[in-house]
Amino acid sequence: MKTQEELTEIVRDHFSDMGEAATLYVQVYESSLESLVGGVIFEDGRHYTFVYENEDLVYE
C-alpha cells in the first residue's frame, strides 16, 4: 500500500503533462489510505478536481 505522499506524487506526475501546476491540494477529510481526493490549479487558471483510487485517476 502506498503512502499519501506517494499517491500525491503519482497524481502530480500525471498532471505535469497538462502544464505548470500552481497548486495541488488534497482534501484530507475525504481521502484515505486507499484513495486521494483533491484538486489541481494550473498557472493558466484551469482547475480540476480528482479522485485517485486503485491506480485509477478520475478528474473533471
Rank of each mutant, 00 (worst) to 15 (best):
E5R: 09
D44P: 02
G39C: 15
G19N: 05
Y48H: 00
L57V: 05
L24W: 10
Q4I: 14
T23F: 14
D56C: 15
L33S: 13
E53F: 12
V28I: 12
D17S: 15
R46M: 03
D13C: 15
T49A: 05
T49V: 10
D13L: 15
V58C: 13
L57S: 02
S16Q: 09
A21Q: 10
H14S: 05
R46I: 04
V58I: 10
Q4F: 13
G45S: 03
F15S: 01
T23P: 04
V51S: 07
S32N: 08
E20D: 09
L33A: 10
V37M: 08
G39P: 00
E5F: 10
V37N: 02
D17T: 15
Y25L: 05
E53T: 11
S32G: 09
V26G: 01
D13Q: 15
E20P: 11
L36P: 00
M1H: 11
E5Q: 10
L33Q: 09
Q27L: 15
I10A: 05
F50I: 02
E6C: 14
A22Q: 09
E43V: 13
Q4M: 13
V58W: 12
S32P: 04
T3Y: 05
F15P: 02
L57F: 07
Y52S: 00
E6W: 10
S32Q: 09
E43A: 13
E55G: 15
E60P: 04
Q4V: 12
T23W: 14
A21P: 13
Y59S: 03
V28L: 11
S16M: 10
V11Y: 03
V26L: 05
H14Y: 14
F42L: 05
F42I: 01
S31Y: 12
D17V: 13
Q27N: 12
V51Q: 03
E20T: 13
R12I: 08
G39K: 08
E30N: 14
G19K: 04
T23I: 14
G19P: 04
H14C: 15
L57G: 02
T8V: 14
G38W: 10
M18C: 14
L36R: 00
G19Q: 04
G19I: 07
R12A: 06
D13W: 13
E5C: 13
V58L: 09
A21Y: 13
L7W: 06
Y52E: 00
E9W: 09
I10H: 04
L57K: 02
L33T: 14
E60A: 10
T8K: 08
Y25I: 07
Q27M: 14
H14M: 14
E34P: 11
E34D: 07
I10F: 07
Y25F: 05
Q4W: 12
V58Y: 11
V40T: 01
A21C: 15
I10L: 09
L24F: 12
I10D: 02
I41F: 09
Q4K: 10
E9H: 08
G45P: 02
S35F: 14
E6R: 07
L24Y: 07
S35T: 13
Q27T: 15
S35D: 02
V11F: 06
F50V: 00
R12K: 08
N54R: 07
L36E: 00
I10V: 05
K2P: 07
V37D: 00
